[in-house]
Structures are given as structure tokens and as C-alpha cells.
Simulated scan of single mutants.
Amino acid sequence: MLIDQLLDYFDVLLDLIYPRNVKCIVCGEELVGSDIFDICKVCYSKIEFVYGYEDSLDFLSFERIYAVAIYKDVVKKMIYNLKYYDKVYIAKTIAELMKEKLIEYNVEFDVIVAVPLHFTKEKRRGYNQTHLICKHLKRLLNKKYKARVIERIKNTEDMNKLSRIQRFENIEGAFIVKNNEAIKNKRVILVDDVLTTGATANACSKVLIDAGAQSVNLLTFARGYY
């Protein structure tokens, strides 16, 4: 498809502007042959990986949480640089690490769906970082990615200072499914960059299930502290 070809060209352009396998995407140090995921050994050693998976928490509507790492240090810097400093090439490394998680636990699914941003926030930032991650996951896993299946129709207040219960109340009614056929009777992997209380992912999962999804599992790069 033309869109996929354009995305491939975009990736080639990014590789020319930001050559991979040259410098660590976290600290900028020169990489050596044994370094992986474009991260040097020192930075990689600081990543606190999450082993196993987590069954759905109380009153969350997805089945399992597959998280790659704890949200701190190197992982926190990677996400921050991706979201706020336009270092979009980091999305590919995040997708590669997410792919390893899914393969390790042999997760079976039919379609990838991204947690959306409200259009005003996406316009201000210029992109949705989770959408970028999903585009890479699509090609790495050779799976279907249905972009913009979910739309965020409510620009909620900043949730950083809200309690867990307040976050769930704040996000209520914030999402709708725009394309039911894309997920009807499908096993969905819902992708987000960071999971804290799970309020946003839960709201997205609920509308997917209500729209006919067979099941929803959550894949997140970073997990907040328990």
C-alpha cells in the first residue's frame, strides 16, 4: 500500500538523519559491536526490566499487562526525549524492546491499536508517540495496525495531581471507537508508552470491548511503581 511505502521511505530518511548503530540513543556515547537496541552497555544495565506479566488489576477491563520496564532512569529519559524533544527515532528502539516482550511470552493477537491523544495535544506536539511506536511494531511483527480506531473526544484535566480514583472518574467518557469493524471479534493489543494507574488504558479497553473486540491485552513500554 502507498501509505506503508511512504512510512518505509520515512524510516530510511530518519536513518540517514539519525544513523542507527552509531551512538547510544540515551547518552550519545559511541556504540560498540556488542551493544544492542542502539543502547550502550552502561545505559542498558540501568534499565529495570519487568519480568513476567501482570493479570488484570481490579476493575480494569483488559486481560493482561505486558510491561517492558519500570518507569525510571534510562526508560524515563527515553520516553521524555521521544515525547518532548522530537527524538522520534527512539520510537523504533521502544518498539523493538516491546516486540521482544511479546515474543518471549508468545502473545497471540490479531490487531494493534494505539492509545490516542486528544487532537489539540497531538497538534501541539506534532505527533502521537504511541502511534509512532505502533507503526514500527506493525512492521516488526508483520501484524495489522489500525490507526485511529479510538478517538479521544474529551480533553481531560491534567491527571498528574489526581488520586487513582479521581483519574478513573476524570477519564470517563473520554474515548469512542470510530471503526468497529476493525476490531470486531478481534484479539486486540492496546499499546501505550507509560502505564501508571491504568485509568486511560482501562477507558480505551472498555470502549473496544463494547465495540465488539474479543479481548484486549495491554502492552506498555514503561510501568509506574506498584
Rank of each mutant, 00 (worst) to 15 (best):
I47T: 10
I39D: 07
E104S: 11
A91Q: 08
F37R: 15
Y53M: 09
A91I: 05
K87H: 06
A114G: 10
Y105K: 08
V115Y: 02
K99C: 04
E63C: 03
Y66I: 01
V42G: 09
Y105T: 04
D55W: 10
Y51E: 15
V50D: 07
A91L: 05
D86H: 12
Y71V: 02
K46C: 13
E108N: 11
K46W: 03
D38G: 08
F109A: 11
R64I: 03
T93Q: 14
S45R: 14
F119M: 09
Y66E: 07
I103N: 12
M78L: 15
C43P: 09
L82M: 03
D110I: 05
H118F: 07
V68E: 03
V50R: 12
G52H: 06
Y66W: 03
V50E: 15
A67D: 02
E48L: 13
I65G: 01
T93F: 01
I112E: 08
Y84N: 09
V75E: 05
K101Y: 01
V107R: 06
L57M: 13
L57D: 12
N106P: 00
I90E: 09
K76H: 08
D73Y: 00
I65C: 06
Y51V: 11
C43L: 08
D86N: 15
L97Q: 10
Y44E: 15
V113M: 04
I65H: 00
F37G: 04
I79P: 03
Y53K: 12
A69K: 05
K87M: 12
Y89F: 13
R64W: 00
K123E: 11
K92L: 08
K77F: 00
C43W: 10
V74Y: 00
V42Q: 12
I112W: 01
V75T: 10
I90C: 04
L82N: 10
Y105V: 04
S45W: 05
D110W: 00
I39M: 10
K41I: 13
Y105N: 08
F37S: 09
F109L: 04
S56W: 01
I90T: 06
E63T: 06
V68T: 09
E63I: 05
V74G: 04
D58V: 12
I70N: 07
K46R: 15
F49M: 14
R64K: 15
Y89H: 15
L82C: 04
Y66H: 10
K72A: 06
Y80S: 11
E104M: 12
L82P: 03
F119N: 08
N106A: 09
E48W: 00
V75F: 00
K92I: 02
E100C: 08
D55Y: 13
A69F: 00
E63Y: 01
E63G: 11
Y105H: 12
S61R: 14
D58S: 13
L117Y: 03
I103R: 13
